[in-house]
Nucleic acid binder design. Sequence first.
DNA 1: GCCAACGTTGGC
DNA 2: GCCAACGTTGGC
Length: 151
Amino acid sequence: MNYWLMKSEPADVSIDDLAHRNTVGWYGVRNYQARNFMRDTQQVGDGVLFYHSSCEQVGIAGIARVASAPYPDPTQFDPTSKYFDPKSTPEKPRWQQVDVEFVRKTPLLSITQLRQYPPLAEMVVLQKGSRLSITPVTQQEWDFIQELLAC
DNA sequence: GCCAACGTTGGC
DNA sequence: GCCAACGTTGGC
């Protein structure tokens, strides 16, 4: 059992979208490190901090969980998709995704708030220059954030 | 829109 | 395999 922070642009898929649809395929990852986390390390049931990025209110917007094994991201084969990858084939797919299932929406924990808590100082997503869209979260960080949200 | 940081590409 | 050039991310 592991914990993760997964970035989504709310203009694309927000926590409210996830709440409505219950489960979404995490399509569009085009970074090998992030892909490898989904393909090699994530397991069904892993906890996910659902994070809104590239928007007005950047931060943790809800809780979710990993809900499937990895499978090929269909957008890589779709020439009309901005995630189309001409070098990928159905026989040898390059990009994988998992399904992510809604758990609950939370009050927004903004990135500036997150930076104020010393126990979160080492969070990967808060490190300078960190751009990975999927990052591991430690048990301690997860527990601390759950306590914050319980207040 | 800026720009730091990082990832990818491709010539050699 | 090196590395310069270029492209992308994402907070501000």
